[in-house]
Simulated assay, not measured.
Amino acid sequence: MTSYVAPPTSSEVIPLRAETARIFNIQRYSLNDGQGIRTLVFFKGCPHRCPWCANPESISGRIQFVRREARCLHCTPCLRDAQECPSGAFEQLGRDVTLGELEQTLLKDEVFFRSSGGGVTLSGGEVLLQAEFASRLLASLRRQGIHTAIETAGDAPWPRLLSLAQQCDEVLFDLKILDAEQSRQLLRLDLDRVLANLAALVRAGIRVIPRVPLIPGFTLTPANLERIFARLTSLGLTEVHLLPFHRYGEPKYTLLGKRFQLAGVAEPDPQTVAAVVAEAEALGLRVTLGG
């Protein structure tokens, strides 16, 4: 597998405008990331660098191109055009969409939303990087009675987060490492701002569902989990989603020509996960595994 990243042009900057957004995937029929059957929109670009990220293609805000060697026919000459590639070996990661185009696509699944109580979740990457577009999209969907949610790390100025949260039926809020220095160095995350935003969402009466990835050696430590659960109970939150580490995204790193930092790290065994669930439930938290 080899990768090719298009040379930088003005079109590769994340379009921080209300009219267009840069996304890299739309996932239908999801039973996670919110209630009911959901359609997920993955926004491209993320300011954080979580070593366990399962979507490394989301990190760069640039449009990228990759070539899957196993599928490549070695055409001569290769046009490096994902739409023209006869074997699907050449793939474009990221595309720009207008508000109308994306909304029309999402509403194709409306019958599933209505029948299951599901809806649309905006994920990433980090949707807060494209907050103006996302806020307009969510507001339009809600006017049509569609259940809306975002998944976010919450690390942005409060007015930007609030503009999205006010258009959501629920906010899936990621909590990772509750040590400020480790969060800054490992994740490029401002923990003080994250925790202040979390508390502000709760005070504003917005439904918040905390989500905790269980990553051996990083988040899955007794001290870190104790801090997280204590923070949740102090805010009066009563549920948490626990997301055990998996390695499904590892092949994507190879495809992108990157090194997966957690190569060789084992997924947590069922006994370890069960112990974490028991710890959370003992504090009165309702636990969902896997989101």
Results as ranks from 00 to 15, higher is better:
5 V>S: 14
34 G>L: 08
167 Q>W: 00
19 E>Q: 07
261 Q>G: 03
36 G>T: 11
19 E>N: 07
1 M>Q: 11
206 I>K: 06
123 S>G: 10
273 V>Q: 12
50 C>D: 07
104 Q>A: 15
125 G>W: 12
265 V>N: 02
101 E>G: 12
175 L>D: 10
29 Y>A: 10
218 F>I: 15
92 Q>R: 15
60 S>Q: 09
117 G>K: 08
254 T>Y: 07
33 D>H: 05
82 A>V: 10
207 R>M: 01
238 T>W: 13
178 L>R: 00
35 Q>H: 07
70 A>S: 15
20 T>P: 01
202 V>H: 04
52 W>G: 03
108 K>F: 09
54 A>H: 14
163 S>W: 05
131 A>D: 07
257 G>N: 06
205 G>Y: 09
34 G>W: 00
3 S>T: 14
235 L>D: 01
273 V>D: 04
271 Q>K: 10
118 G>I: 01
275 A>N: 13
165 A>N: 05
23 I>C: 03
49 R>T: 13
98 T>P: 06
56 P>W: 02
252 K>G: 03
9 T>A: 04
40 L>N: 11
265 V>K: 03
46 C>D: 05
36 G>E: 06
230 A>K: 09
159 P>M: 12
154 G>R: 05
16 L>M: 14
250 E>Q: 10
109 D>P: 04
278 A>N: 06
159 P>S: 14
23 I>K: 09
85 C>M: 03
7 P>T: 13
178 L>T: 10
186 L>D: 05
192 D>P: 03
87 S>T: 15
201 L>R: 01
106 L>S: 07
182 Q>V: 01
254 T>Q: 11
277 V>K: 05
